[in-house]
Design a protein around this nucleic acid. Structure first.
Ligand code: SF4
Ligand code: SF4
Lengths: 175, 175
DNA sequence: GGAATTCCGGACCATTGCAGTCCTAAGTGT
DNA sequence: ACACTTAGGACTGCAATGGTCCGGAATTCC
């Protein structure tokens, strides 16, 4: 099918729906940056640390905010941190072993799609809701999709841009 | 350091991340209901109309709110409405030709994932952002995933429950 | 024609979560 | 000692969501 011949996005400025928070967004950017740096300098793991300030400046994002994001990321074990003069953050694992799903979950908390899925108590009409289960499947599909993307996919190899194309996930959904 | 190692999701009730609004949720439920009714009564299209009140009561959702959701749905052409004593709403198209993506978009507006995608002006750092493109791909994948689900998939065939399994979409993502 | 029924549309409000700031520790290297 | 950097909490402004209310217009039934 896929019809929708008309589109008319004229006054559709509302923006909502399945939004990914900016924090998660920033988080991914930071991760990507770290991945690239680690690659560029050749240094592995904790050796090539970048300070929160550096990353923030590199992308022009609020330093304070980024700082806290990195903190939580570190707390969740995705990053290793090191204080002190040449401290900073570095990937806790190789860039090919950290996927987008983890990152997002670490920052925004678990959850997905509907209110009912994560905490069972939230939606009071969970009893009469008949759409819950199918939606959970969709939820899982998106999760798998996201889980199939590792941050190495996001990082560009300095000059050779084509490369990667690691065909992240292959998600099939059957209700 | 690498502290953490403890997880403590005790008070992680935040719920966020890729959330689908409750309005869209309700909308899907309503659509499903209408699909089932149309199927049960055999009547096609505008013949078997259900009032907003009826649907709201069937699922115990706020009538006034559902009313407005149905209104927008009708305005977008997914439903046909009819005022008057035995009026109400009915699917504008067969249940196999309305997909979840349309519904969600009709209710919550377009948009997806990041702020930058829909309106170009939103994210001020779109210039320096290197993650934008990959994310757009993810975005599209989710869209395709959603677009592969038609509301007929959600509706149960009255007794025979297995049936359907129309294996909605097959989405592969390659960055 | 009138009354009941149902949709339409906008205005309105309360809560909540997001985005972002600030400030005070506590580690760490020179 | 001192500069640098992470850690964590408290706090604020704002926008979106979820939900309500009301006056009006269409339609059908009597
Ligand atoms: S129980 Fe149903 S209505 Fe409630 S959040 Fe889940 S899917 Fe939505
Ligand atoms: S431009 Fe980059 S930072 Fe801004 S919303 Fe898009 S992906 Fe996120």
């Amino acid at each position: 099918m896929v019809r929708n011949s008309r589109w008319d996005f004229r006054f559709l400025a509302t923006e909502t729906m399945l939004r990914l928070t900016k924090k998660a967004d920033y988080g991914l950017m930071a991760l990507k940056y770290l991945a690239e740096q680690a690659l560029a300098t050749g240094k592995t793991g904790a050796a090539s640390a970048q300070s929160a300030k550096d990353i923030a400046e590199a992308y022009h994002i609020p330093p304070q905010l980024l700082a806290k994001i990195l903190q939580t990321l570190a707390r969740q074990g995705l990053l290793v941190s090191h204080a002190g003069t040449h401290g900073g953050y570095a990937l806790a694992r190789p860039a090919t072993e950290i996927n987008a799903f983890e990152v997002i979950r670490a920052i925004d908390g678990p959850l997905f799609i509907t209110s009912c899925i994560t905490i069972h108590g939230t939606c009071d009409l969970a009893g009469h809701c008949t759409i819950k289960e199918p939606l959970r499947k969709v939820n899982d599909s998106i999760k798998d999709l996201l889980a199939g993307i590792v941050i190495a996919d996001l990082a560009e190899t300095p000059d050779h841009e084509p490369s990667v194309t690691l065909a992240g996930g292959l998600v099939s959904i059957a209700l």
